[in-house]
């Protein structure tokens, strides 16, 4: 039974990270029907920024949690600035173009950012300091749970709860929901759609950066390429949960994380991806819109 819980928590940790990144995919898709393939790179840039900032702060001799508290906001702001700029440069000029054009633009952006970091930083793997402080309470259950896993899950839960509240209760959240339903109608009732789209990119990028910083300090290393696989998996999670649906992305992330962990734990890690994608195929056969997605209604 202990083994079951260990695997369960591993899956939960992994799933929380997937969910954080998946939210960015799903929010952007919900509003402008674009799959932002550069999103995985934002996650990577968030982690890289954190590495640089924490390196500087660490040299000043600050304690771990202080570094984390100062690093996270910087990484979030920096990654958000990237998200905002990418939208302005690569997607906004193509907003009325055929849907394939921004998709190609997104792929181009993704490759550009990878290579930019490769050239500006390094192609090597870099050690990432473990910023997540050890918690005495958790460490008593050492082996079953690690404190960094607990911190990741709790932080992800708080961030997602905050996002849900923001979408549900604020004016801006309402504007986002309205734009998701129909950008043209939203514009007609006086919503600044450009602003809403920018905000969507900023929020999505911020979430990805949080995910990037958390996982990098959990596994202790990064390089320019970490965004690729994480991005693909998070995109899978978003589709699994129903792309465009915010609770769907959260659920999809967790389901994917657990599927992978349990496949590894009880079958074989050789088949981790097989199970993950078999699940995706099954869900799309029986619920084409994803677990929580609403079937697309032809707007007339």
């Amino acid at each position: 039974m202990e083994y079951f819980f260990e695997i369960f928590f591993d899956g939960l940790t992994r799933g929380s990270i997937y969910a954080l990144i998946a939210l960015g995919y799903t929010m952007v898709y919900g509003i402008i029907q674009l799959i932002n393939f550069a999103h995985g790179e934002i996650y990577m840039i968030g982690a890289f920024t954190a590495l640089i900032v924490s390196g500087v702060l660490g040299a000043l001799g600050l304690p771990g949690y202080a570094i984390l508290l100062m690093t996270l906001p910087v990484a979030v702001i920096y990654a958000s600035a990237y998200g905002y700029t990418i939208e302005k440069i690569a997607y906004k000029p193509l907003r009325n173009a055929p849907r394939l054009s921004p998709l190609i633009s997104a792929i181009g952006m993704s490759i550009f950012l990878q290579n930019y970091v490769l050239l500006a930083q390094t192609p090597d793997f870099l050690p990432f300091p473990s910023l997540l402080p050890p918690l005495d309470v958790v460490d008593r259950f050492h082996g079953v749970l690690s404190s960094s896993e607990v911190i990741i899950v709790v932080t992800a839960a708080l961030v997602m709860a905050g996002l849900t509240a923001f979408i549900k209760f604020t004016r801006m959240g309402k504007a986002m929901r309205a734009t998701a339903q129909s950008p043209r109608m939203a514009m007609l009732v006086g919503i600044n759609v450009d602003q809403v789209i920018s905000l969507t990119f900023i929020i999505g990028s911020a979430l990805a950066a949080v995910g990037g910083v958390l996982i990098a300090s959990h596994v202790g290393q990064i390089n320019f390429y970490i965004g690729f696989l994480a991005g693909i998996k998070a995109f899978t999670a978003a589709v699994l949960g129903g792309i465009g649906s915010i609770p769907g992305a959260m659920l999809g992330g967790l389901v994917l994380g657990w599927t992978e962990s349990f496949a590894t734990g009880y079958v074989s890690s050789d088949y981790e991806d097989v199970f993950a994608f078999a699940l995706l195929v099954l869900i799309l056969i029986f619920r084409p819109a994803g677990i929580l997605g609403k079937p697309a209604i032809q707007k007339v």
């Binding site: 695997i7 591993d10 940790t13 992994r14 962990s261 890690s269 981790e272």
Partner: peptide
């Protein structure tokens, strides 16, 4: 899988 986000499981 190389490049997976972690190998805890």
């Amino acid at each position: 899988t190389p490049g997976a986000i972690d190998y805890s499981a």
